[in-house]
Design a protein around this nucleic acid. Structure first.
Lengths: 204, 204, 204, 204
DNA sequence: TATGAATGAGGTTTCATTCAT
DNA sequence: GATGAATGAAACCTCATTCAT
């Protein structure tokens, strides 16, 4: 428990450094220790290596990040539209909570090989997280299908739905950076409506 | 000229290493030299530093990558559907040509901060490349708008269109890795039709 | 304190290497570490760079070297002749203590091994040290002037006085190397007398 | 002959670099070649190695430097005072010709820029040059002894005479840098008189 | 248990020397 | 003969990891 709280302090330090734009190789053990407010050597009481620290921190973050979505979807008891809008709102809230972990360049920065973060374990973790996220999206879409509001559900439409949400979340989060003209600006409410509308289009 | 061909050999080596999942910090000058078949010191006859090599390699790649799209769109003289399909086909072809530069995990790997590549210059280059790409997509969409086939054109729909294409291109390129069930498999032709269809939905 | 003693070990190593005729560029960090009996990386716990190590080592040495002269002159309470002879004797003693830092080839820039370096900071330090030394010599000469034993005191005579002392100190220290014939050999006592005599001549 | 003129161009380049405060290790073969206006590889048509180039350049310089003194003294046919003054004037002139090779920080080791090197061969050369110089000084002093103007001649007084001359030459050459007060300023004529006077004192 | 001083392998960069042209 | 592109040994410096306290 004390053990677990130490680890969490360390995870937090790692995430802080990621937020500042550092890559795995850029992050120094001494920095992690400083941020966590512990001695450098103490890191090795809890982890076998630097890579291990980072891998666990990433896994920890992904779990923390996905949990609200998981719980939201599994306890969903509203109609499709309300469920969608709630999901999007949850997304916006989490995005704000972790805003410094995102950057506007990503998204469909599909040539992401250049950004390769090289810890094989983290790649695996990210893939799994994405797959779980897509499963959650599909569950929501299935509500819509049951309500006959949409019909076209498969990985393609689930992915497109995910993109629609993410693009909008990023639009809201990075309005100023994305170079969008003033006349195109919408309120958050409008944005959410647009997204819901886009989901309907995407899934017929 | 000889100078330029030397540099290209070096760019090639850098891209090869990126393909293998290495990040900027993971790539060693000695490796670049080995791959390029030259001596370590020779790198420094053409570049001021390792970072310089990588920055130029990225810029070179992005230029090479965007050029066919740029030319295709600027010379487009067909109707909307044919232009779309040609664009998607070009994408598929280029994806194959550079397939090892992509990975299936990316796409909406939106928490890309974790992949931070840390060379400020490359981030800028990627952003510019993405913006140019989106401009090209919008140009195509404008053809559709003139033909009254679509109406909803703005950054959101352009982004969604880009995602639709990219998702499909990745689906085709990584069919086996993405865990898609056999019965969901489509021919390339069908995929392209689906994508065109998705674009119509996305832009109304 | 522990910190200071580590630094002193490192200074000692640097001076040892200077003694062996190495210039700033000839001295390798690994050698300094070896001589100091510590690891290469440990140097950087105490200094920011190799140049920094050398600069501080030179400053340290100059301070250690000048301190006895400074104290001797500032506490001088004897007559001119005794003060002169005491000063010369102190010189001879210090020369012996640091004999390997001198070489017979130099002129009066007897600590010329250090000239081997091109670190701007060290040049400044040497100049300041020489100026302080000349001030001390002038203080002694002023005692002689008060006693009306000498009258001609200015920078020229102070410099000549310094040269007279340094030449004699080197004569004693390098008797065998300087190619002086046997019949010209003097005892240390005689040498000191000759030097005192020379000072009287030089300052009238 | 062409060979010899090539070498001289190279020597000149090396001396130029010394003048700029570089040590043996600081001087790059490519720089020597640039200054000499030839290709880097061509250096090796004339010299076996970089050290060889520098050693020969130093020897060449010392020969060029000593030759006028040697000739002046060996052809001396005036009285002691005139010979001394002529010698001092020659010194001042040569100092001006090669002024950038000297620096005010050194003591009498006035060509101290060369001390920057640790090439054993150059140390030997410098020692021999100094010994020859002292021989020339002694020859002049012997004229004074024959005229019964001075009596005290040995290595000590020869060295002191040499120092007296060098200090004054440096005083004239570096008046502004040496921090001498305005009221102590003398004309060159006065300086030469002072030096002659000092030589008389030094040698009784 | 917790620390951080110490280490040294391994990274980037420089530059004397070679050799094909 | 003359060149300078290419080389790679060797330098400086960083930082993950260890271990005595």
């Amino acid at each position: 428990m004390a053990e677990e709280s130490k680890k969490k302090k360390i995870y937090g330090a790692v995430l802080e450094l990621f937020r500042e734009g550092k890559s795995v190789k850029d992050i120094k053990v001494s920095e992690i220790a400083n941020r966590a407010g512990i001695g450098k050597g103490s890191i090795y009481l809890h982890f076998a290596s630097k890579d291990d620290v980072i891998l666990e921190a990433v896994e920890y973050f992904l779990d923390v990040w996905l949990k609200p979505f998981r719980e939201y979807v599994n306890n969903a008891d509203k109609n499709f539209k309300e469920t969608c809008i709630g999901f999007i709102n949850l997304h916006i809230k989490l995005f704000e909570d972790y805003s410094s972990l995102f950057n506007p360049q990503s998204g469909s920065e599909y040539i992401s090989v250049f950004n390769a973060n090289t810890l094989p374990g983290t790649i695996e973790s990210f893939r799994n997280a994405r797959l779980e996220y897509l499963d959650l999206v599909e569950k929501i879409l299935n509500i819509g299908a049951e309500e006959k509001r949409i019909s076209y559900i498969n990985r393609y439409s689930a992915n497109m739905t995910a993109e629609a949400i993410m693009l909008m979340v990023k639009y809201i989060g990075f309005r100023d950076v994305l170079g969008i003209e003033k006349e195109e600006e919408y309120t958050n409410e409008q944005c959410i409506d647009l997204t819901y509308d886009m989901i309907l289009r995407v899934c017929k």
